[in-house]
Nucleic acid binder design. Structure first.
Length: 483
DNA sequence: TGGGGTTAT
DNA sequence: ATAACCC
């Protein structure tokens, strides 16, 4: 394409070039332009786009399912559709459908308040996350078909980096299709904006892909949700919530400041959590503009360089963090909370329950955890939210017993976890727990042994000679290409 | 306040 | 091992 741009156009600024380019493209699409000029226009147009790898031209979508647990429950039991529905975990209603919200019920209300507000409210128990987790991964896997780079955030949100996919579509588009590009869904904008501007083309294509994603999620899984399309994760996430159930919004670059200013408090910025908000408020910072204009030096001294620089950039709507593929989970955990657990037998029974579910999950996954962790929460603690944990490696002979489908690993795992418990809690003293959680982490693929090493050909055997205390091996089937 | 998850220190 | 963040 070098040399295509005429010399006399070299001095013009970029915005002027962009709108002129579209006028010329539209004129070309009308059908009157001679062949060579039309071709020049298309090449010139592609020249105006920023390089695909440049950080300012990323296209990110944030997909956020509507009241996810409630949707899953309505799919499981269609009789719940049309009724006000809440999903309950212990005394908390963690989410509810839109029928319930119309009647004044809010997310994360206590069950008592919710029933008071809405006596007809139907409640289902959502403490077992199995079906939610399975549906959640189906959504992520479906989105991965559009672009392999998908990052999960909780069970109901996903980020997808569409930059490369958008680039591919742009290059396949014909002249007439290029000028006829339209947005899908809402545009976040207070000012009037020229959608035909070249600077917006990638985001428009992104909005169309987002619409296709939502269609696929609805058609194949029966779930509705919102999407936000923008140039980074922060903005995509913020803009996805602008039009709320089952709609999507694209953020054009000139409106990004409006979007961050629309947040009335810094705690609304994803990445600024409870603790940081408190520390910022102590510094007199409460609005987004407060944070933007606050001294960087003082902020760095107060919060440390990394946090200070990151959150101050966030306040300007800047976020260069990449979308990182989540892939399979890094850990599996099961927890249960209760009013009181204060004896060894109670603890052991709870741990057996938690482990039974975990062993099933680990079996399904196929990988092997090499670390177990026990987490507890004590009652009397002045900090009710604080937890203590102990972890240890899982002995290799126990790892071997995992994932065989039966419960060979149950007894040894209970013994290990009870040791961790005794390490944390002095059982000669009275104790009062309000939560127990067991976590399997440090997951490794079954065969890490590489071709050409002895371990690759020798696979540990469970069936023979266990009494000797020595490991026994069977020869693996070999193939000619192994040699 | 539940039952999960992640990364940084 | 804990602390922060996310849902």
């Amino acid at each position: 394409t070098q040399g295509v741009e005429p010399e006399e156009e070299g001095g013009r600024d970029q915005e002027e070039d962009a709108s002129r380019a579209m006028e010329r493209l539209e004129a070309g699409a009308a059908g009157s332009s001679p062949e060579p000029e039309e071709s020049d226009d298309l090449l010139w147009f592609h020249d105006q786009l920023e390089p695909a790898g440049s950080s300012s031209s990323r296209v990110i979508v944030h997909v956020d399912l509507d009241c996810f647990y409630a949707q899953v429950e309505m799919i499981s039991n269609p009789e719940l559709k049309g009724k006000p529905l809440g999903v309950q975990q212990k005394s908390l209603m963690v989410t509810c459908n839109y029928e319930a919200r119309k009647l004044g019920v809010k997310k994360c209300m206590s069950v008592r308040d919710a029933k008071e507000k809405c006596p007809q409210l139907v409640l289902v128990n959502g403490e077992d996350l199995t079906r939610y987790r399975e549906m959640s991964y189906k959504v992520t896997e479906l989105l991965e078909e559009f672009s392999p780079v998908v990052e999960r955030l909780g069970f109901d949100e996903n980020f997808v980096d569409l930059t490369v996919v958008v680039e591919k579509r742009l290059q396949q588009l014909q002249r007439d299709e290029l000028s006829a590009l339209t947005v899908s869904g809402h545009v976040y904008s207070n000012q009037s904006v020229n959608l035909q501007d070249v600077l917006h083309i990638r985001l428009l294509v992104g909005s169309q892909i987002a619409a296709e994603m939502r269609e696929a999620v609805y058609n194949q899984l029966g779930l509705t949700g919102c999407a936000g399309v923008a140039s980074n994760k922060l903005l995509a996430k913020l803009v996805s919530g602008v039009f709320k159930p089952n709609q999507q919004t694209v953020l054009l670059p000139e409106s990004s400041q409006d979007l961050v200013y629309s947040l009335n408090h810094i705690k609304k910025i994803p990445g600024i959590g409870y603790k940081t908000t408190k520390r910022l408020e102590a510094l007199g910072i409460s609005s987004v503009r407060d944070l933007q204009t606050f001294s960087s030096k003082i902020l760095e001294k107060e919060l440390g360089l990394a946090v200070a620089q990151r959150i101050q950039k966030l306040s300007f709507g800047e976020d260069d963090s990449p979308v990182t593929s989540s892939g399979p989970p890094q850990s599996f955990s099961e927890e249960d909370s209760f009013k009181k657990c204060s004896s060894e037998v109670e603890v052991k029974n709870k741990i057996e329950e938690l482990l039974a579910s975990l062993l099933n999950r680990v079996c399904q996954d196929g990988r092997k955890p090499h670390t177990v962790r026990l987490i507890i929460r004590r009652h009397s603690s002045e900090k009710p939210w604080s937890r203590e944990s102990r972890q240890c490696p899982i002995p290799s002979h126990v790892i071997q017993k995992l994932g065989t489908g039966n419960y060979d690993a149950m007894t040894p795992m209970v013994d290990i976890v009870m040791k961790l418990f005794r390490n944390m809690v002095n059982m000669k003293m009275p104790f009062h727990l309000t939560l127990l959680s067991v976590c399997f982490c440090n997951l490794k693929a079954l065969n890490t042994a590489k071709k050409g090493t002895i371990d690759y050909y020798l696979t540990p055997s469970l069936s023979t000679t266990s009494r000797s205390g020595k490991r026994s091996f069977k020869m693996k089937d070999t193939h000619m290409e192994d040699f």
